Every structure is written in C-alpha cells, then in structure tokens.
Amino acid sequence: MRVLFIGDVMAEPGLRAVSLHLPDIRGEYDLVIANAENSARGKGISKRAYRTLIEAGVDLITLGNHAWDHKDVYELIETAPIIRALNYPPGTPGKGYWVFTHGEERLLVVQVMGRVFMDPLDSPFLALDRLLEEVEAEYVLVEVHAEATSEKYALAHYLDGRVSAVLGTHTHVPTLDAVILPGGTAYQTDVGMTGTYHSVIGGETETFLARFLTGRPQPFRAAKGPARFHATELVFENGKVRAISPYIWEEPWTPSEY
C-alpha cells in the first residue's frame, strides 16, 4: 500500500500546488491525505477549498488548531472525509480518525494535537492508548499536529512498535529527519508546508515584519507567490512501513509572474 501525505496546504498557493501537481502523480498512490487547516485564505477550511482538494485527488483531509476558523467546517466535518484532532473533549463535532480499506488490509489514520505552546486539550498520549485498544487495523498512521519538536519525538517513541508511522505537521517547516525507529515505526518531525516559501511560514512577509519590528498585532494576510508542494511518501508492506521518503515539487515560475 502506497500513501502520500501532503503537508499543511496554505492558502491559494497551496491549493494551486495541489491542483497543478497531484493529478499527475495520483495514480502512483492508493491513498492521498492532506492537512488542510490553513487552506482557506490561510486559516481554516471552506467548502471551496475542500472541493479543490477532492477534485485534485485527495482522499482524506486532516485539520488542526485552525479547524474551526470557518463556519463551513461544521457542515463538512459531519459527512465529508475530514478528521480533526482525536484529543478534543467528548462532544466535539466530527471524527478523530478514519479507517481506509485496501484489499484485505486496513489503515487507521488518526490525528492528535500537541499541548505544548498550543491549546490545553486532553492528553494525546492517553487518547491514542484508548483508540488503539478499541480499533484494530493492520497499519496505523498517526499525524501529530504540534508546535514542540520534543513533544512530537516523545510521542513517536511512546508509540514505537505500536503504530506504523508518526508524521508531524503544524510548523510549516519541512524537516530532514525521516527515519524508521528501533521498534519499526516510521517518523518525521514535520512534513512541511504546501504553499509559497516566499513568505513567513505562508504569511505575507511585510505584515510579519511589522509585527516583529513594532511589537503590535497585525492583520493576517496569506502570502502570494510560487507554489511548492511538500509531502511524505509511505510504503506499507507485510505489517510495517517499508519506506518513508520526503517528496518535493516546485511550480515553474519567473520573478515577473509574482
């Protein structure tokens, strides 16, 4: 089973990157997952952003701490192939996991949110313990949407040998630490951002500079510019991950275009 996980899709450049490139490679994968919590103008998800991703070939969408920034999500999350963090309190709309069937094998995809420098949700460690006792699958892919690299690494080691892969999202900075841990679990601290890197983590550079130089709040504006597609490939075989590989594509462009 071949799976492609697309890192945080950021605003119009991110949607454009997915629309331009994913259809060309979609046939190589059994399942395509995309984090889209920043797909609608940089914060949250909208019906338009959802349709763009699905039409391009995305099978499953994950969210994050900006999950609720657009009211469209409340309608989408109840029926569409979208998951939010598992460790939200009971009663939160939507689902924290998804089960994908490929032949006779099942892949459990689950997202948890970190708590360090983020919202004080339930423990992602204990939430995953409970889920792994309740849901059985040949393979388990855990997305950790978190700020602190230490929390991501700790969770990966905690789960090593119990899940197939742990992939980090949220910081919008791709890391070159893709590895298979001693217990057999594949791990990468952050898949990276799908969007324009002519920015400050996807935001307009001038606005962020004004914030840092003045110390005063500034309105958020998503950056424009050439798109870059960041993802991670996973190959599942015989009960474990056989390979983990970062994947990058850049939109052809000339400076005059932007």
Results as ranks from 00 to 15, higher is better:
T194S: 11
G114I: 01
I54A: 07
Q111S: 12
D24Q: 15
E55A: 13
E206Y: 11
R16Q: 09
L167W: 03
K43D: 04
L141G: 00
G203L: 14
S39D: 04
Y187C: 03
T52Y: 09
V73C: 04
V18E: 05
A40Y: 04
E133T: 10
M10T: 07
A210G: 15
P124F: 04
G42L: 03
H70G: 03
P120K: 12
T52Q: 14
T185V: 07
F236S: 05
A154L: 12
T52N: 12
P246T: 00
E12T: 07
G225P: 09
A243E: 15
E133A: 12
G27D: 12
L22P: 05
R41A: 13
E78N: 12
T171I: 13
R115F: 06
G91D: 10
E28Y: 02
A40G: 12
A186F: 05
H102E: 11
D69V: 02
E251R: 09
W249I: 13
L86T: 02
G183F: 11
M113A: 05
P182L: 08
G215W: 09
E37A: 07
M113L: 11
L20D: 11
A223S: 08
V142H: 08
R84K: 15
A148G: 05
P23C: 01
P93Y: 01
G239M: 10
F5K: 02
V109K: 01
E12A: 13
Y153P: 00
L121A: 01
